[in-house]
Design a protein around this nucleic acid. Sequence first.
DNA 1: CAGGATCCTATCCGATACTG
DNA 2: CAGTATCGGATAGGATCCTG
Lengths: 121, 121
Amino acid sequence: MAGGVQDSAAGAGSRCDVLHTDCPARDMVDHVTSRWGVWVLISLRSNDLRFFELREGIRGISEKMLAQALRLLVRDELVWRRVEPTTPPQVTYGLTGFGREVSEPLTELFDLITRRLPPAP
Amino acid sequence: MAGGVQDSAAGAGSRCDVLHTDCPARDMVDHVTSRWGVWVLISLRSNDLRFFELREGIRGISEKMLAQALRLLVRDELVWRRVEPTTPPQVTYGLTGFGREVSEPLTELFDLITRRLPPAP
DNA sequence: CAGGATCCTATCCGATACTG
DNA sequence: CAGTATCGGATAGGATCCTG
């Protein structure tokens, strides 16, 4: 069962307890749930996108933050990056297999919240 | 671009597009995925907990940040707060129905990542 | 077009001190 | 115990300019 983070740690003491220590998992969770990382992952769920498409799609993000978020996600192997050496150069981003797995609960979360909230004018 | 996100909202064009505007849903997602909110929600999945239990359980959190995160989550009605007027006073926190719904994909996310990561030396 | 480098501001956050 | 208030350093993040 998925329930009980402590439980799983209590049972298998060897498993890294994310809530109590600085383990790599905690960092990755922090990246995935970071202010902009969330929206990048959700945006890439439907299509691979180019840099400017992401920037346009996520209103409010700056180029700096987008670049930074993407760098982190690529490092964590949640997102891949393909460079087309044309002029002007094209760079496309997309989800890796793991990125797609991770983006699924994220989308669930997102849907849950938007479904509950009032239509909002 | 247009994403899968919009697709689910498609049909009801009036639905707020979280990726493009500043709508309340975006704020709530930000709260849920905030640095400490994540861990509070995950911690409360197994049991209701008191303030100091949360502080002990989430290593690295300061009282200030815990209080702030809790205030936000209570405001968003993801977490309830019960005050026992004893001496010393006891305050207990727990998940609301909606909080439990929301914490589920969060736990999934968490499990996905910890499962993938190396056992951590 | 896709970013890196720089500068500067807003905010996050911890430490400390204080209250009910 | 369960917080609030305040201060100061660290960090996030926007704006602008510049490059391949």
